[in-house]
């Protein structure tokens, strides 16, 4: 029985079936429409991840600080003199500084993520350019076949030979039509991809800038908390804090750049590939 099983296992049919099973996914990946879908999918996933990496943690910390500021305001409004709540103010400033410090720690993770993502995006862009090059190569090949067939028609040996050249001409015309359409799609995709990479880089730099500001905020709040604690002087602590500039304009820029990223993502999301004309 074992001899029979061994015989079946070594049969060419089974070996071929196995090799087809192994080879097919690789061949499919090398196919241009598959590659288009794969690059597109990667771009959409990278943008989605870039918009989220570290955001949830930062959001939680900022919401805690928002509540702390609102609570402090209430306490200030209720107190007869601000100096009466100096201990509470100092503790809260300490907590706020701690939260800003934790949020600023996201900067290193975010920078690491964007550096890796940028490398991957550049790699995908090279793949897109290689795919365009491959289509141009196929167009050149088909065009030369078409031209050769056209030149051969007047010199055809007989009717069948002429028909063969005519079929070659019409087949190549049809394939060229599809290839040119594919080239258009890839070129539009490449243009959107280039814009997306540039806009995503800008958005990431703006997120980094916001995290940098939080880092500096943390230092100023820590110093102000210490001033309030050591000197028991609210006025001095507040003058330190007021020196901090607003970052509203940077936040507006950040939102605008992410909106731009979203627009390009929608544009890429709508791009579809047509069935392969030449494989």
């Amino acid at each position: 029985m074992w001899a029979r099983i061994f015989q079946i296992a070594c049969s060419p049919g089974l070996l071929l079936a196995l090799s087809v099973t192994w080879v097919t996914p690789v061949a499919a990946q090398a196919d241009l429409p598959e590659q288009f879908v794969s690059i597109k999918q990667f771009l959409l996933e990278t943008v989605s991840e870039s918009q989220r990496v570290g955001a949830a943690t930062t959001q939680t910390l900022l919401k805690t600080n928002l509540a702390a500021f609102q609570q402090l305001k209430q306490r200030v409004d209720q107190a007869a003199r601000v100096d009466d709540i100096i201990a509470e103010l100092s503790t809260e400033l300490d907590t706020i500084a701690g939260n800003f410090e934790k949020a600023a720690l996201m900067r290193r993770d975010y920078q690491q993520y964007t550096a890796e993502a940028d490398g991957q995006l550049q790699k995908r862009q090279s793949q897109t350019r290689a795919a365009i090059g491959e289509i141009q190569r196929r167009i050149a090949l088909r065009t030369s076949e078409l031209e050769a067939a056209r030149r051969a028609v007047p010199n055809a040996a007989n009717g069948i030979d002429r028909d063969r050249h005519q079929i070659t001409i019409s087949a190549n015309q049809s394939v060229l039509h599809s290839l040119r359409a594919q080239a258009d799609i890839w070129e539009q995709f490449e243009s959107a991809q280039t814009r997306l990479i540039a806009t995503l880089k800008m958005s990431s730099e703006r997120v980094d800038y916001v995290l940098f500001v939080l880092e500096k905020n943390a230092q100023v709040y820590r110093a102000a908390a210490n001033t309030a604690k050591l000197r028991n002087n609210v006025r001095l602590a507040l003058s330190d804090l007021q020196a901090l500039g607003g970052i509203e304009s940077s936040l507006v820029d950040l939102e605008a750049s992410w909106r731009e990223v979203d627009q390009i993502v929608n544009e890429i999301g709508r791009q579809e590939f047509i069935p392969n004309a030449d494989s």
Binding site: R52, A56, Q59, L62, V82, L238, Q242, E248, E255
Partner: peptide, 27 residues
Amino acid sequence: AAQVTWQDVSATLQDVEIAKRDLFQSM
């Protein structure tokens, strides 16, 4: 958590800036 984006963070940070300004004004 997976649904929070940097746009949301930006909006919260704007609220923080407003709350900070309100506190300074009260003080």
